[in-house]
Design a protein around this nucleic acid. Sequence first.
RNA 1: GCCCCGGUGGCGGAAUUGGUAGACGCGCUCGACUCAAAAUCGAGUUCCGCAAGGAGUGCCGGUUCGAUUCCGGCCGGGGGCACCA
Length: 845
Amino acid sequence: MRFNPQTADAHWQKIWEESGTFRASDDSARPKAYILEMFPYPSGRIHMGHVRNYTMGDVLARYKRMTGHNVLHPMGWDAFGMPAENAAMAKKVHPGEWTLANIETMKAQLKRLGFALDWSRELATCDPRYYGHEQALFLDLYEAGLVYRKDSEVNWDPVDMTVLANEQVIDGRGWRSGALVERRKLGQWFLKITDFAEELLDGLGTLDKWPDKVRLMQENWIGRSQGLSFRFRVDSAIAGYDALEVYTTRPDTIFGASFTAISPDHPIAQALAPQDPELAAFIAECKRGGTTAAELETAEKKGYDTGRTVAHPLDPEWKLPLWVANFVLMDYGTGAIFGVPGHDQRDFEFATKYGLPIRRVVAASPEAADAPVVGEADSGGGVIVNSQFLDGLSVEDAKTEVIRRAEAGGWGQGTTVWRLRDWGVSRQRYWGTPIPIVHCDGCGAVPVPREQLPIVLPDDVSFDIPGNPLDRHPTWSKAECPKCGAAARRETDTLDTFVDSSWYFIRFASQPADKPFDKAAAESWLPVDQYIGGVEHAILHLLYARFWTRALKRIGRLDVAEPFQGLFTQGMVTHASFSRVPEGEERPVYFEPSEVERGADGGYTLLATGEPVTVGRLEKMSKSKKNTVDPDVIVDQYGADAVRWFMLSDSPPERDLEWSEAGIEGAWRFVRRLWRLATELEGSEAGGEDRALKRKLHQTIAAVGKAIEALAFNKAVAALYELVNAVEKAPASADRAEAARTMLRLVAPMVPHVAEEAWQALGGEGLIADAPWPEADPALLVDDEVTIAVQVNGKLRDTLTAPKGTAREALEEMALASEKVMRVLEGKPPRKVIVVPDRLVNVVA
RNA sequence: GCCCCGGUGGCGGAAUUGGUAGACGCGCUCGACUCAAAAUCGAGUUCCGCAAGGAGUGCCGGUUCGAUUCCGGCCGGGGGCACCA
């Protein structure tokens, strides 16, 4: 009988579902294991990347169940977001309808893959039963002072009448409308993530089950820098400012200063502008400049000399000019700098352009103190020179000394500055969580009373004209001020969807109807033991979720500091793509694999025209590149197990996996082999021992368990292949029958359908999903005979077999007796013999 | 520019408290079965060489009895950040 996934898959999926096999229990004596994969955005259909991601989590979840854990492995939908509104505009369908239809499709697709998910906890963020609680949490944070409103610059598309994310601005134009994007100041809501900068940074130190790469990326993003904040006295006060506060990480170069510069947005610049039309013009010019990385890269350093001067804090007679410069950022440090052209490249370019002095204050040695700085700034280390009392000190010592003097003299203090900015969460869009705030002319921004939650999105909206439908809805935004009762206006901005994904893992753990979560229940599951998802979320989602969790901890709602104890970032699924750049155009056109054919020379040509096409080998599957493979089609053809096995084979999970026909064929071959091996065994009741096979079995049990716990699925797969090969080759025996049965339990987390089917065929008790993970017998993990490598001068010359634990002297004797060794030695006595017991003998001639 | 990660057969990759490099899979070659094909099974497959043997983990050097593994210097690949003072 052949294994037929078309019937077997559905059969076992139904049984698992009906018996509630994968339901998590809230009260269980077994140790908990919370396994979570990043929930998908319901974009339409599942893609191979999802399949790979969820298969990995599934193997771990099933393995944890078998090793006696109470497993929580839930699934839900990150259901708010722009694609739904784009679909609404393009297809005239309500975003909610579109989203729910997609969820239905994708849920069916996931079910076909046989994932061990607890569907009873399914949630969608676009459900008021979810986002209503999110509004309550937002208000909690608001009351705790962790939410504030501020005017902030945004990219405004004047045609679509919407705010655009930086990624949606292409060459200064809106990606959809093509209109020139304006910079506009709008009142925006912010979450005070900067309040948590230090603990978010320090907390990374506790995340030893996270990839170093991700911790490093977050560390850089948070960006702590230590330096000195100090004041230059202004010669005559400007708009009440009698001092200019600057920040530097190089206080050691304080004697190398040749100018000071402030950002065009600095209050002093703003105060001077009205009396100085030239300055006003310069500031306006700076504002026009683009903000893209490429533009900044090539942007010229430009400045305007205000004509004012400031006094050096260490020498009041030393006057420095005060410039306004385009490269000084208002939102980092104090928005003002002092320029040290000798040792900072930007300052060097600026000084060169405007003829300002370039002074050396750091040199490789005191003798090099007078060497001019030419060509570019000298960023090297060394000793301080030309700096009075700092001369001869190292850079580090000089930093400490200047900070000490500044603090003692009261003109500055050692400061920590962060790169991290507060999180702007306002989005001028419909399909998101409404921000529960009412704006009243008299009372300002007033939080919505709890009893009015959830603030539900109106259904009767249209997307015929651009802009936010909430804004122009006839009644929705009308509200009564909760404070004074006057007519007021509801906030029509919605929350960034990253807020939705910042706490869904808590809601999975506990979902009461009347509150976001129950503290004790949530704490019983959290933190997530293993979180798995794409590395593209290394910073934003993972940082926001960490922040949100810590914010809840601070306000006493949840006693969990870090939401994700273990993190794994899996690689993409890639596939060859076929493209051709048409004559006279720049952008390539992509073709379906069915539109091309392989020529005799190995190159590919277009079937229709015979024109050659370019093969892109390792590209992420995407619709625009026409290199996607629909999981449904593959499952139809090969069944869920073959797809799952392929997703786990070969490539290490953190690296990209190339989809190939040969790969899925190979996986399918393995599934059939397993089935054949198990069912052929039926009735072959030979007795007798097979020590070698038994040992192999136990070594495999240990190896597979270790590999799965390390998420090294490719290694688990390799170990299983070895076992299957060994069982196949072994003659019939009681040990062989036992090995085959045990083998099924070892493959069960990966290929659960064929495992259940074969388990049943072999008369296994109950479901294999409920079977315990086999235990490896430590006595069988070690071989009692070992192969010893025999080297001469570190070069392998021979091998010999010896009982484990053979004495050094005996091994040495055996090695020296080797014919091959004797031939190489040519009768000369060895100078030295190194023996590593049970491993090797190295004869040094 | 700054920071980080990995360079191993035709391909994906295994092996690191330094100890037989190439497990396992894919592909390929030969063979068996078959009228034939598919499927399946067996043998082989780092390179050079008929062989003996030699070379070999990006390149150059070092430490060591012994280096894919440790150290120094290069060369290419990928990723993150970026006018952050």
